[in-house]
Simulated assay, not measured.
Amino acid sequence: MSSPLTRRPLGGTGLEVTPLCAGAAPLGSMPQEFGYETPVERGIATVRAAFDSGINFLDTANIYGAGESERRIGAALSEIGGAPEGFVLATKVDRDADSGDFSGDRMRRSAEESLQRLGVDRVPLLHLHDPEHISLAEAMAPGGPVEALLRLRDEGVAEHVGLAGGPVGMMAELLREAPFEVLVTHNRWTLLDRSADGLIDEAVDRGVAVLNAAVFGGGLLAREPGASTRYAYREADAEVLDAARRMHDACERYGVRLPAAALQFSVRDPRITSTVVGTSRPERIAETIRLAEQHVPEELWAELLALAAPPERWQW
């Protein structure tokens, strides 16, 4: 496996990104999702650490912490006078958290809010976020969110556009309907859950770059057995917890940390351009790089690949 810091082409965008992407959702301090608070200064320090690490890719969203993630990134950018040369900053346009408004007009306001918080006049990559909150017809309607996103690209607010969401069926339909350049899938291509396999194949066949997020399932695959009972931001089924325990035991036999295997499951996949790893402490940036570099024997992969949770427990 190549270095987690060797840049790769992001599909046909012309951008180059590292196989590791710093995920900024935890920077927004969302205890309802992650179970802990992230103080302001620690969040800003984590962004600084990302800038200094060799990772050149950071992913956030308008809705993370009601904009707090973007504010903290903006504060770090202000300290250093802007993003380092070649750094790729991605954010996402979001529905209104209070009203649920997912209109084209809302997408434009979402982008404007993000640029203001980040302190930039454009971003290299802008995603449509969580369209599963509306129907396919609403997403694709004239003047609707997809059209608005494409117009933002045409106006130069974003250099490139992507699609970030959950349910694999709707994500596949949207990829067929609109010229997205990048796909972000989350919680659906992990050691435990292989829901997104076909979706990833289809994206690659269409020339769409794939980013994979939440490879630890919100923490279950990053901690000791019993330390967490949640997967994908909700209580996990007993079969999912049992699969995680068996994976931990298999890794122990080979002297490999489970989070290293969970991360490399994605990083080693040639279809995945970059793996988004949420971080909320500066020291986690270097630790994530170390996890990506730890040797995982082929014999262990054979065991782990057979230990996924049953398909009926996957997110789909």
Rank of each mutant, 00 (worst) to 15 (best):
A203Q: 08
E202N: 01
S2I: 08
R290M: 12
D242C: 08
T288S: 13
T46G: 13
R284T: 07
D121I: 08
F87D: 03
L175F: 07
V17M: 09
L183Y: 04
A243P: 10
A76Q: 06
A22Y: 05
P26F: 04
A178L: 12
L149A: 06
E68A: 14
S99L: 11
D237H: 14
G165D: 04
A90S: 14
E70K: 07
E202F: 08
G35L: 01
A213N: 13
A243K: 08
A90R: 09
A232D: 15
C251D: 07
E33I: 14
S114G: 05
A83T: 05
A49Q: 05
M170D: 00
R48Q: 15
D201S: 10
H133A: 13
R271Y: 05
P9N: 09
L291S: 03
H248F: 15
V204M: 06
L174V: 08
S114C: 06
A227Y: 06
A172C: 06
Q264R: 15
H129S: 00
G35V: 07
Q294I: 07
A76M: 07
E33G: 05
P19N: 11
A139N: 06
E155N: 10
G74F: 08
S228Q: 12
V240S: 09
T6P: 01
V267L: 13
A203H: 10
R281C: 03
P4S: 11
E79Q: 12
L115W: 07
R7A: 12
